Computed example of a mutant assay.
Amino acid sequence: MSLSRILPLGQNGRVVVLPIRFSSSHGHAVAATSEKGSGEPNFVQKIVYRFKGIPLPGEAHAPKSMFDDCDKEWFAEKPPTPMPKDYKEHPDRDLANYPYPERPMYPPKTRLLMMPDSWFTPFQKVTGASGPYLFFGGLGAFLVNKEIWVFEEQGVMLIGWILFYLMLTRTVGYKGDKWLYGELQKRFDYYNGLIAEDLKDAVEFRKTSAAESTSLAAVKENVPVVLKEAMALQLEATYRKNVQGVATELKRRLDYLKETEETKRRFEKEQMVKFITEGVETQARDKSFKEQYLQNAIQQLKALNIQA
């Protein structure tokens, strides 16, 4: 991915930048040597150093280069959990003739940076290693020669788009795959969390159902006795309510009879007093009654004197 560059350094010296590739966790490292001593890099050299990840004078750590991830192949840290081979969402599912589709984790093997390897394999078995390349090259030349594929400005744009695609996939493809895998893992974790919550609810429901079943079995034998006692309590409550009603009604009637008798006596007393008062007043108007009464009183006084 990198090219050797010869950059001017002052008037008498030149710096040769040579790419040296190492197999390490930090990717590619580039060493710079100078023919005559070392000096302060110029503007172009600083840009080159930044692109190559070479630390400038005075920097303790090498900067992060934008080309560190170029031409890297991405591999998942842990592959997704495969579906069990004997899994069936229904007993009638035919897994032999209609298996579950599987999402490929990695793109298929390619040749020439973008051509599927499956296109070359059938020819390679018959014609050898160079046969597929000659076949597709000859087919392309035949289509252009016979003007079946008219190679106009759209064809040039197609080549440009292919080059742009190759450059894009080789530069940011690693980071893009890594980011998409992280988002996929987040989505898996989200759905796994939902499944875990559902399983937790199911386990809690099973525990609650078991406890309720145990309680029901414990009280099942006592249900008839409980119902009988409840019926007896209801009958007792109804009886006491009826007795209370009878007592209330009886008291009300007795109160009515008592009040009636009291009213009757009071009326008789009033009539008697009135009758006596009228009789006395009538007799008081009679003079013989006064004399008779006076004689009667004198006789009673004499009788009292004799007794004394």
Rank of each mutant, 00 (worst) to 15 (best):
G58I: 13
T214D: 04
F164L: 05
G155H: 09
F123V: 01
Q244M: 11
D286E: 10
N42Q: 08
S130C: 02
P82Y: 05
G37L: 07
P57C: 04
P19I: 01
L166P: 04
D198H: 15
L257A: 06
V243T: 08
R21P: 07
P104Q: 15
E40F: 01
K178P: 01
E204I: 09
R252H: 14
Y174T: 03
E89Q: 02
S34G: 13
T169L: 07
F51R: 14
R103C: 03
V226Y: 14
V243C: 09
V44E: 08
T208P: 00
L199Q: 11
N97M: 03
N97V: 04
S24Y: 05
K72D: 12
P84C: 02
F188S: 14
V172C: 11
S65E: 04
F22P: 09
A129P: 08
G131E: 02
Q154A: 10
S24G: 12
Q244P: 00
P84H: 09
A210C: 06
I159F: 03
V15I: 13
E35H: 03
L168G: 14
G193N: 10
E77P: 00
A303L: 00
W74N: 03
R206W: 11
E77M: 00
T169P: 02
G53T: 04
R14Q: 12
G245E: 13
L139W: 04
D68M: 13
K125D: 07
S215F: 14
P8Y: 02
A76M: 14
P108A: 11
M115I: 00
I195W: 13
G176W: 15
E236M: 13
K264I: 07
Y239G: 12
V246G: 00
G173N: 01
E59S: 02
E59V: 10
E73I: 09
I159R: 05
P116D: 10
N296F: 02
Q299S: 13
A141M: 05
G39Q: 10
R240K: 14
E259K: 13
K228W: 10
D69R: 05
L95D: 08
Q124R: 11
S23C: 12
F136D: 03
K290C: 05
D92M: 12
E262H: 03
M66I: 06
Y174H: 01
L113F: 00
G155A: 08
A211D: 14
F67L: 09
M66L: 15
A196Q: 15
R14S: 09
L139E: 10
E89M: 08
F75V: 04
S23W: 04
A211C: 10
N42I: 12
A284I: 02
P116M: 05
Q271L: 15
E291K: 12
M105P: 01
L158Y: 07
D86Y: 09
K207A: 14
I306W: 09
D86W: 06
L134E: 05
L18H: 04
V246N: 11
E268V: 04
V280R: 13
D69T: 02
R187W: 09
K241Q: 13
G39N: 04
F151P: 03
E35I: 02
P107N: 04
G128Y: 10
M66R: 12
E278D: 15
L143K: 06
K241E: 15
E270P: 03
K72C: 14
S34W: 07
L180R: 12
Q300G: 08
Y174D: 01
I47P: 00
T208I: 11
F123T: 03
P108S: 09
G131Y: 08
P107H: 02
P80I: 13
Y133A: 11
